[in-house]
Every structure is written in C-alpha cells, then in structure tokens.
Nucleic acid binder design. Sequence first.
DNA 1: TCTGGGGTCCTAGGACCC
DNA 2: TCTGGGGTCCTAGGACCC
Length: 417
Amino acid sequence: MTTSSPHTIFHVDMDAFFVSVEELFDPSLKGKPVVVGGQRDERGVVSAASYAARKFGVHSAMPLRTAAKLCSQAIFVNGHPERYREYSAKVHEVLGHFSPLVEMASVDEAYLDMTGTERLHGRPLRSAHALHAAMKSATQLNCSIGIGTSRLVAKVSSAKAKPNGVLWVLPGQEAKFLAPLDVGAIPGVGKVMEQKLHALGIRQVGDLARLEERDLEQRFGKWGLALAGKSRGLDAGGWFDNAVGENVDAKSISHEHTFNEDTGDAERLRSTLMRLSEMVGRRLREGGYFARTLQLKLRYKDFTTITRAHSLEEPTQMDHQIFEQARRLFFANWKAGAPVRLLGVQASNFESGPGQMDLLEPSRDARWQKALAAADHLRDKFGESAIGLARGMKGGFRERVHENPAALPGSSKKKNE
DNA sequence: TCTGGGGTCCTAGGACCC
DNA sequence: TCTGGGGTCCTAGGACCC
C-alpha cells in the first residue's frame, strides 16, 4: 500500500459470532454463559464463548473439559456450520452495499476498501455507523468496526472497538495509536514471538518502533523486517500486502479427524483415510483443482505428529489416487498397532488440469471422472450419507462425520473477539 | 487443563543440475 | 584432484490465524 493518498480500510468483525447466531435460534441462551464447540466431556476445544462465559475465564481454543471446570453452569452447544455460513452470506451482502471491494477474511470478519466512497457514503465515521446499523437491522447481529489507513491498523482498531463499537484511527496517528499496545496485539505475533520479544525487553509496539530495521532483520530475518513496518502501522509482508478484494486462489485443501478415543485398529484407520481422501477429492473437483502433492498427517496418542508427502508425476483430483497415496504413506510410516489420535489428508501444489491421460487405457480416467461426478451429484441431492465409494470396508464401519463449527475457517479466536 | 479443524507462510536441508 | 556456487524442487516441521 502506498502512502501518497491514504487508503481508507474498514475491518468489520462480528461480535461473538457463533454464540450470537445460536442465540437467534434459541433466544433462551441470551445473557447466559454459553460455550459453542461441543459437549463438556468431549475431546475438542471451545469455538466461541459468550461474554457471560468469558467472565469465568473461558475463551476460544481452550479445551472443552477445561471450560467445564472453570464454568460448571455453562451451557454447551454443538456448532452449526451451515447456520454460520448462512449468516456469513448475509453479512457479506450487507457489506456489498457499502463498497465493491469486500474481502471476507473468515466467516465472521471482512475487510472493505472504502477509499473514494465519501461522496456516496460520507466521512468514515458516518459510513461506519450507517454500516453498523444496516448490519444490525439485516442480521440482528452486532459487529465492531475498525477504520485505518492499512489492514493492520483497521484490524487492531476493530479489536479495540469491541464489543459493538466503532473506532477510527486518523491518518498520521497510526504509530501513536499502536505504541502503547502489547507486541502481542500485532497480527502475526503469537506466543512464541511474544516471548522472544519480551526476552529482549521489547514489550510494547512503541519499543519495537524505536529499533533499527536492520537489527530486527538480522535477528528475525524476513519477518523482522515486516515487524518493523507493522510497528509503524504499515501492511508489511505476506498476505497483508494484497489489495483488498483481490482474489487469491487456494493453495491447499485438507481434511483431518481426531478420534474420540485413540485407536490402533488398522481397518478403522484405513477406512478413515478413505473417507478423508473422498472429502479432499470432492473439494478438489468442486474447486476445479488438480493436485500434484498429497500429504498424510499422523498424530499419536502422545501428540507427536508427523507429516509425510509425495508428489505425483501427474496431478489428480480423483478419490482413489488420493487414497492410494494416503494409504501407502500411512502404512509405510505407522508404528504398527500404536494408538493413533489423528489422521489427516492434504492436497497441494495445484496445477490447472490433468496431464497426460493413461495412454494404454484411455477410458479409465474418463470412467472414473464420470462415476465421481455422479456420486457428487447424488451427495448434493440426498446428503453425505447417500453414497460411499469406499471399497473393502470389511469392518462395515465408518467413522461418523460429525458436524463441527470448527470445520469452518475462522472458527475460533485466540484473542480479540 | 490435555490439547479441533482448515488454512497460510516461512525456514532449512538435501537432491540435482549447470 | 579438490572443491565452487546458484537455482529449483521436494520434503518436514513449526508459528500463526480464525
């Protein structure tokens, strides 16, 4: 982003989104300590907590069982991803009335480039309040809005505006606004980086801004350089540099599953890999992606986790090819019989289309494509359980797919909700 | 406390080629 | 004979985000 004529960026963040949506479906939840993400005795983490629950120390990403201990009277609610998608679409629609440049950063937050909309919508604070009101009347949901000259400043200020507020950081005031905040407030600075900075006596963003760029680069490489810019309110590094609304293609598609209880049952593990492979294949076909690299993820009881990848000669989007690699990688690396906590399958390294078809048997791939298209169609029509391409499921057993809100990107928030 | 699921980006080492 | 260095691809792991 250039400095010549400052951009006006809005960051719109829905307040306690999952909880608020659940309240619309069950108004009796209002005002109570509510935890969304699963039941109190389940393996899993909190996707969202109501403000009443947060008073007990419950927060996103915390194990459900811990939340139950902290707040025994909390009401535990399973997530409903389809509801969140539905409301996310409503949110998106409202935002579209305010700027053509809207970018949903996750289900419950978005960036808007409001540069040059003043003639239509008025000054930033005025349009933000109009947006806030329009959001409430269209969705019955509260949001908070941060306004700044960069994504970074808009995002940090929306966090400061919570709950249900609007905050505008005037052009030129970015460094002053950020200076007193803890370094952990900078998006991209997590626990590890925060500790490293604290160890150097750097606690606030202002401390960071006073350092020489070169020193930061020497100590932290590329990321150090970006950090120097961020401390002054600039969008530096990675995704932040993209223009708002710019379409970015997916880089990977993955599915993973944590078992309710660890299992060393080879047949069960195999059938889970099959199901995950089908889910990945399905999404590849929906998106029109062909993947060259397939990766297996394996987590044991003690949480040690390995990933093993393999790149194919020709990219694929077909279930059986994905499964073939996942299965091979699994049985080549699994300590046979060892209890497994999690399995995952990931596709990446996308290319635009399939390469050479099988010359010896040109009809083979085509037949598969056709069969899969038909299966996808049936699933669309009758639901996920209508059909399984899973062959050789001797146990006759499939792990049940249970709808978890966390399956949505942007489902939990470690901070700043 | 006992740790989900779906992503992105970065680093680092080794293979391989020139 | 000993010893380069750059570039690219692949793989593994980890920090971080929502």
